[in-house]
């Protein structure tokens, strides 16, 4: 369970997240959608305690994230797959993460196997493709077998097999009763993966609804999304 209430983040005069309130419930895949610059990544950073909010609060398991003991056992997060040191092997990256939360070495081998990286575990991460780094980031998030998963754009750079893997993985975790929050720009992917949607634009909440509630009135989820966000897009190209 993730509870966000009145969450606000200001950077000088700019407001990235503006009085945002929502809950992410267990047993569902909750999609987190919004145009570029909507404040999705900032919201996830606030949930993970990487930055303090200007107002409001974000609770995970009923507590602010920084107060969780051994947080990897409670929450698995993937924010930016590129944020790993390139001169370390995949296995060593997972080893230090495991050690930081008292997770045993056997689990490192398990998540390497789970993410299909066993064969390249000793290779330096700097040589990895974006898709392989993404798999490593997901392996890291699964290390503590947590009840809450927070993924920012997890299918970025993945091949079709990898996209299917992520989708099945997220669905399976939700079915087990875990809490899954996943942000994406890929509406078609969300239509296949999510049960529930939270749509934000310019830092504000636009919709907090079951997937079916949005798609009922429009032919596709994409049409529903575009109609919902039409007045709130900061960056628009011309065809």
């Amino acid at each position: 369970m993730i509870e966000v209430s009145g969450l606000t983040k200001r950077y000088g005069p700019a407001t990235a997240v503006d009085d945002l309130s929502f809950q992410v419930r267990p047993g569902l895949v909750t999609g987190f959608l919004g145009p570029n610059g909507a404040g999705k990544t900032t919201t996830l950073r606030l949930i993970l305690g990487l930055e303090p909010p200007s107002a409001g609060r974000a609770l995970v398991h009923g507590r602010p994230y920084p107060e969780l003991r051994d947080p990897l056992l409670r929450v698995g997060a993937l924010l930016d797959a590129g944020a790993v040191q390139g001169d370390r092997s995949a296995r060593d990256h997972l080893r230090w993460l495991a050690a930081s939360n008292g997770i045993g070495p056997r689990r490192v081998a398990e998540v390497l196997e789970l993410s299909g990286l066993t064969g390249v575990a000793r290779r330096r991460v700097g040589r990895f493709s974006l898709g392989m780094r993404q798999r490593l980031g997901i392996a890291a998030a699964l290390l503590g077998d947590p009840e809450v998963l927070v993924f920012d754009e997890p299918v970025n750079g993945l091949d079709p097999e990898g996209v299917r893997w992520i989708r099945d993985l997220l669905r399976a975790r939700a079915t087990e009763g875990r809490t899954v929050l996943v942000s994406s720009h890929l509406i078609s992917e969300m239509a296949l993966t999510a049960d529930h949607l939270i749509v934000v634009a310019r830092g504000r909440l636009l919709a907090d609804t079951p997937l079916a509630g949005l798609t009922a009135r429009f032919p596709t989820l994409e049409d529903a999304y575009l109609s919902l966000t039409s007045g709130h897009v900061d960056y628009r190209g011309v065809a």
Binding site: G49, L50, L68, L79, A83, V84, Q85, G86, S100, N101
Partner: peptide, 18 residues
């Protein structure tokens, strides 16, 4: 600085918030 340069510091502080 190797953690700052790559952004891995975010992973570090997510795993160890203290």
């Amino acid at each position: 600085t190797a953690e700052h340069a790559t952004g891995m510091l975010r992973t570090t502080f997510t795993a160890m918030p203290r």
